[in-house]
Amino acid sequence: MTQPAERPEAGPTDPAKGRIARGWIHAAGAVVIIAAVGALAYESGLIPSPQAARQGMGSTTAGYFQPPTDDQIPDDEFGAAVRRGQAIFMNTSTNASEHVGNGLSCSNCHLDGGRQPYSAPMWAAWVQYPKYRSKNNQINTMEDRVKGCFTYSMNAQHSVSGGPPPAGDDIYRDLQSYFYWLATNAPTNRKMEGVGFGKVEKTELGYSPERGEQVFAANCSVCHGADGQGQKDINERYVFPPLWGPNSYNWGAGMARIDTAAAFIKNNMPLSQPGKLTDQEVWDVAAFIDSHERPKDPRQKGNTIEETRKRYHDGDEIYYGRTVNGVLLGVGTPDPVHPVASQE
């Protein structure tokens, strides 16, 4: 080493230092290579992304009956009826204009065009009819059932015709064609998983519109408006449906019952975040929504609210005929001067 003629070894004087440095370089190189190869594999889809994994797990429709997709609608006369039925279902106030007396569509409560489990999917409903219903104490065909929807949920009493479509109307044929097609391959006469709106267990506290008001302000008003009257776009078209008042469902609708509304909300609301609200919040907010005045129960006719409550709402979880904050509910909103959306 001390001989001038002898070339000193290249690199650091301390051989150990060199080995450590080399080790670091190799390690860094290996990390970069692994990262590059990993990124390649991820890009090409060889490695399942956490997102893909979550898609499988968090899927809300997995495990339920899968109705056919729109591109499977047959290209024939029956398919044309399915499409007409779908158009009525999605845009009820236009395509069944004569019989809709409020601002709602079927698809406001039957989400994803009647496909979504626990938002009363039509594939599960179709296979349950004909069926006995205590609501009218008789065997109901699907047509009878849909007639009920028009009478109560669509508030037909304030429509141009003043009532639901007459028996045998094409509206029923087209809607039933759509339901039947949605239930392709579904087992007849079986209670399918995802039917109806589900059920929310009662809570110890019971329900309270006062508590519900806060839940509503925090979770619902962003879409349905602070006054619950829904929201429209610049063309005056409803984007979010009204939940009470003259443009909503009437006192005879299933959704006017707190337990039904609670189940719908629990399983479907807020849109894109079902299950976000606790059972208690769900009961409270349903009570808040259903403690507002809405169009009268069309079955009341000449009777008093008290008689109508006894006859049609006995034992129901409903504010109809009850007094909230000193106001008797069930009187109904004022009848419109002209039928809703009548011609000028």
Binding site: R115, V222, K232, D233, I234, R237, V239
Partner: peptide, 23 residues
């Protein structure tokens, strides 16, 4: 819907014209 992703237009309006003030 399989991923709880509603359509854009169900909140932003049926033509994407927006709904004030949030959307």
């Amino acid at each position: 819907w399989s991923r709880n992703v509603p359509s854009c237009f169900s909140c932003h309006g049926p033509s994407g014209f927006g709904v004030a003030p949030e959307f």
